[in-house]
Amino acid sequence: MKAKKLLALALSCVCALGAFALAGCSGGSNASSDGSGSSTGGAISVISREDGSGTRGAFTELFEIEDADGNDATTTSAVVTNSTSVMMTTVAGDSSSIGYISLGSLNDTVKAVEIDGVAPSADGVKDGSYKVARPFNVVAGQSLSDVAQDFLNFIMSSDGQAVVSEENYVSVADDAQPYTASGKSGKVVVAGSSSVTPVMEKLAEAYQALNPDVNIEVQQSDSSTGVQSAIDGTCDLGMASRELKDSETSQGVKPVVIAMDGIAVVVNNDSAVNGLTSEQVKGIFTGEITDWSNVA
């Protein structure tokens, strides 16, 4: 009788542990760890950016997520978000998700994974060890107002580049000279990329502290809209988080690289995944890999 009770107790413990394991797989996280940070199962929820996003354009190019004709081959099952902040919120709220954001916008609401064994960092972008990187451009039309040119001068000065570095982006002007307040007045409209917007807002704040009679208005949209706005003359400076296309520069606008930025591949904080190869990222975003169990 006593042996039967012990057997029943043992079986109940096994069942409880089995139920706990199943709950863990289907509850807060669709991926579990084997101790090495790899995933052992669960459908992958792919989160991407909208068409026109400079981050999407740079991401698909860097990871070769393209078809034979060079067109974007992101899986049609991807959830599309329209800004960096919405991307982060979406990934933070979906335990099985994977997405990508500007490295400078990374915070503790999501987890950045290593790519080919290298963690994303500003130092890694600068020394070339982290290869998932792209330029931040401002786009100027054929003529700039004196005050818009002065703001651009500030951005490329040692003072402006210090702001770039403080915001976790990579300075592109190590030999830049200090900026002297101009005493100018007026308004400058800067429009475009949601990835460039955060550092542009910090640059505008620092510039206006030195030139209180200038109003810098930063309008967030996407890179393609920012470039087109500069072409159309509806803004003084466009923002683009990618290289400009020949079809854009042929219309008279000129890009100025103000910083370099990494693109961080991010997963939910509860994910067991800590690193991926470039080929795995490509497979996930093209839809060839659809389950975390296929990521070793």
Rank of each mutant, 00 (worst) to 15 (best):
E114Q: 15
G42S: 09
K126F: 11
E66M: 08
S96N: 14
D34W: 06
A73N: 11
S38W: 11
E50F: 08
V125W: 00
T109N: 15
D51M: 03
S36I: 03
D123H: 10
G54V: 08
V91N: 01
S105Q: 11
S36C: 02
A19N: 00
S38E: 12
V125G: 03
S26Y: 09
N107L: 03
C13Q: 01
G28F: 14
V14Q: 09
A112I: 12
A16M: 11
D108T: 10
T75L: 04
F59V: 11
A68T: 08
L106F: 03
G27A: 14
R49V: 03
L22K: 05
F20P: 00
A119Y: 00
M87H: 05
L22N: 07
L17K: 10
V113W: 01
D34E: 09
S77Q: 10
L62K: 07
V86F: 09
E50W: 03
I65G: 05
A122E: 07
V125I: 11
V79I: 13
S95G: 00
T109Y: 05
I98C: 09
F59P: 08
V118K: 08
I98V: 14
G117S: 07
S38P: 02
A43Q: 11
R56G: 00
N107I: 02
A58R: 12
S29Q: 12
G42R: 06
S36P: 05
T74E: 13
T81G: 03
T55Y: 00
G93N: 14
I115R: 00
T90L: 07
M87R: 12
N107D: 15
T55F: 06
G37R: 04
D94E: 13
G57K: 03
N71Q: 13
A19G: 10
T76F: 01
M87V: 10
A19P: 04
V14H: 02
M88F: 11
I65Y: 14
S39Y: 15
R49L: 08
